[in-house]
Simulated assay, not measured.
Amino acid sequence: MTETRPRIEYYFSFISLWSYIGSRVFQDLVRRHDAEVIFKPINLLQVFAAGGGKPVKERPPQRQAYRLVEMQRWRDIRGIPLLLHPKFYPADPSLGHRMLLAAIADGADVSTFVHAGLKAVWADELNIADPDTLVRLADQNGLNGRALLERSDEAALHEQEQALTREAIDRQLFGAPYYFYRDEPFWGQDRLDMLDNTIISGRPAIVMEPISQ
């Protein structure tokens, strides 16, 4: 049987805490398996609303407090810089998402730009909604930031961003990150070991079925 390159669909947002926490580990997994990644930036707040979730500040105080404990644990486990209260969270990531989609359409390698966008929010105290910041991040990661910014307001990119969010909701996502491998969903960066084992084992996929109301 001919082996095929693993293909992973990656749903995330530049403002997703857990996408950032798992970003380096995910990059390592991709390298080890020579996987193809389909980057799918989404409107996380819309996904929360559709799945019954709430933005951080609207969650019960006890859940907010425990989230801070978990952030410190995972910061140590992953060995990454992480701000508990980043200055520019939650900034609107839509412009950055559209610049990313433009770069993907050009066939560019966007993996380091994606990590830089996540790190900008959660470690570097940068405003991911600021055009100059995005241009600089793109330039630093091998892209033409100014050209991507000029294209970012194209109607097709706005529609693509919304289409990806609708797709995420239709696939029953309720947060980020989500990784799909052979249509099997893995929610959260703490499921990356499971994704890794699934790729290695070659076991049949476990596909999520809709639940009737």
Score class of each variant (00 low, 15 high):
94 S>C: 04
145 G>S: 12
44 L>P: 06
22 G>Y: 05
85 H>R: 14
169 I>L: 00
4 T>G: 01
97 H>S: 10
3 E>P: 07
118 L>V: 02
150 E>Y: 11
86 P>D: 12
49 A>P: 07
208 M>F: 03
156 A>T: 12
171 R>L: 01
133 T>G: 04
71 M>I: 08
211 I>D: 12
96 G>P: 00
39 F>W: 15
119 K>R: 15
118 L>G: 00
80 I>G: 07
143 L>E: 01
161 E>P: 06
67 R>F: 03
48 F>S: 12
64 Q>D: 13
188 G>S: 05
77 I>E: 14
123 A>Q: 09
182 R>A: 02
112 T>F: 03
41 P>K: 11
13 S>C: 01
20 Y>F: 12
88 F>W: 13
152 S>R: 10
210 P>Q: 08
164 L>W: 10
2 T>V: 11
97 H>C: 08
189 Q>W: 10
213 Q>R: 05
39 F>K: 05
164 L>I: 07
8 I>F: 02
203 R>L: 09
137 L>T: 03
164 L>P: 00
57 K>N: 14
62 Q>E: 15
36 E>L: 11
120 A>Q: 03
79 G>T: 05
64 Q>E: 14
83 L>Y: 08
21 I>N: 02
183 D>K: 08
73 R>L: 13
1 M>N: 14
148 L>I: 01
185 P>T: 07
196 D>R: 09
174 F>A: 05
159 E>F: 06
24 R>N: 13
61 P>S: 14
33 H>E: 13
